[in-house]
Design a protein around this nucleic acid. Structure first.
Lengths: 192, 192, 192, 192
DNA sequence: AATGAATGAGTCTTCATTCAT
DNA sequence: AATGAATGAAGACTCATTCAT
């Protein structure tokens, strides 16, 4: 069934299968076979479209990052200029249905664990962390004195990651609960 | 030169080498060879003392958990009955020198990523989470109304994990900063 | 844009690309891809025109053989009936610009190494060897007693191959030097 | 059947199996499997002792070179100071029973074809060529004027290689015939 | 005529594990 | 108690070949 113009379709298919496999087996047990079987194609196709497993993994992480970024951009645009609304928008992105989903969270966790030992993943991870940080800080500086803004930025960023992590590990939480905890922190720090 | 009483020495040696290897190469690239080479012994010895790699990994996680637990017990004993002091003690444990160390944090991260796909690790991880949760909740209930206590428990637990995670990923933080962020959260929530 | 009469053009194009690839990567690392890329066509085309890689390789060797043969025929015709002139003509062919060229010599070497394990190549190689042998012997018999003619035939044939080989391996020689060595041997044996 | 001190035994065994496989299948079709099967061991053992296939191939070529070198050294010592005797000794080495054997010659041919595309093999090949060249030239200079000595050096070296090559390709020759051709060349050049 | 998508067999390599010593 | 020789299954990757378009 060879067809023309399959490239974007196959790439998406393989990236989705990678996320699915990471959700099911973890990064360590995600092989070229688990991915290709999940996508319903032959193992060789991965090298045809990505050149190798490593590049597919990097492309997968990149794809998740792009998704997150476009969510944020969109919500920030809708949030208007109010700092409080912008902070809420950022929190909302991170716990929205698309991102806060077992498979996706497990994939992030796998990448996080591998990143310190893999330059490509590390770079992507750092870009993401910096962007979140910078978005939060920008709004918090409008609401708090500089040193507190800085501390709350770190806290809120860490809290978001921590809530993801606990979700990945226990599953005993849903997006709205996580959101409530994060916004509770925000209210407490802003109200003090 | 057969010696007696080598067992506890060798087990500790291998567990330490496992943590070191996880810090250096990550769980995915931690092999029986990297561990045994780090410990300066032959690969076969791992099976002699642990029966296999999996059991050594579980033993390593268990060992880190035991260490954390005894730290907490000790500090809680020293903290006295004051709920605020007890909460501080728990936070302190997590960011004390011994625990908040690159190798150890990387090892935790590796185990976290693997836990959802490995019953033994998952069990240990759950026990740890539950204990932290229960310790925090017990003290928070003395300071806050039940529903808020519950939410702050989740928040503080997630924040602690999130700070660890960011430390593992960026290294741009030390124990005292992390501690300040966590206690800042606590103060904000209690003060509100 | 289907064109007519593309067959001879494509076949030549692919054979040239095969020689080029063998010169650059060696036979072992000459793949359908290195060839088709060098020819600027798709990999599938090789099977269209040659039925497979093996047949293309055989066709390439055959083409080199045909080239050599026609050179020899032409030069022998020009050399006239003198045995000495005919021997010189044969030597000249082997070290003329077209044949004594890095890519071509490397291709020959690759085929030589493969021939003992490949019936098709072996057959071609044997035909070539026999023709050279017979050409040399025919002229040498006019100049030397039978047993010496036979030995010098073997010697001259081996010397020609050996000079090629050293050129392939070291490159530290050009056609005129090689020619001088071969003719020096001839003179020494004839003069003795 | 694990034993101690197997290293030298296994290394030799694997090198011999490599030569045998190259003789039977050619370098191109010599795989880790053909070698290990020939040696009666598992494929993994190659990486245990050589780190990989490439290093085994290089070790094999090195071993053949060492063998040739020690033969030459020994025969030259026995030949005494006479230049003619020394030249004969060198020729004899190359066509002695141990070296002039189908498997070994096929292995040399495989390495020759691969050398131009493989730095490690190329280096070994160059060392060998230089040594032969230098040995021949040293004795020839005692018998001929400089420029002729140089040309005969090239000729004799090429002739030796060419006789090997023809033996590899046709098998229609034995050591004593090859020896006679080479010495015939020498006599002709010296006698002229 | 020509492409390039897709396959699957085969290659090298890694690695946990076993076992004679 | 400890070694390290040896295995074999599994991994990523390559490549000649096929085939719908």
């Amino acid at each position: 069934m060879p067809k023309v113009g399959m490239e974007p379709i196959r790439r998406r298919q393989l990236i989705d299968a990678t996320i699915a496999s990471m959700g099911e087996h973890g990064l360590a047990d995600t092989t070229v076979q688990t991915i290709s079987r999940g996508a319903g194609v032959s193992p060789g196709i991965i090298h045809h479209y990505f050149g190798g497993k490593d590049e597919l993994l990097a492309a997968t992480m990149r794809s998740m990052l792009v998704q997150l970024r476009s969510d944020v951009t969109e919500r920030l645009a809708a949030a208007g200029p109010s700092p409080r609304a912008r902070l809420e928008a950022i929190v909302d992105c991170n716990f929205a249905a698309g991102q806060f989903e077992p498979r996706v969270v497990a994939a992030w966790l796998g990448f996080w664990a591998q990143a310190p030992h893999n330059p490509a993943l590390s770079r992507l991870q750092r870009i993401n962390a910096r962007r979140l940080h910078s978005n939060l800080r920008h709004s918090l500086r409008a609401l708090l004195p500089p040193d507190r803004a800085e501390r709350v930025t770190m806290g809120l960023a860490a809290l978001i990651d921590g809530l993801w992590l606990r979700f990945a590990l226990t599953g005993a939480m849903d997006g709205s609960e996580a959101r409530a905890v994060a916004l509770g922190y925000l209210d407490a720090e802003l109200g003090a």
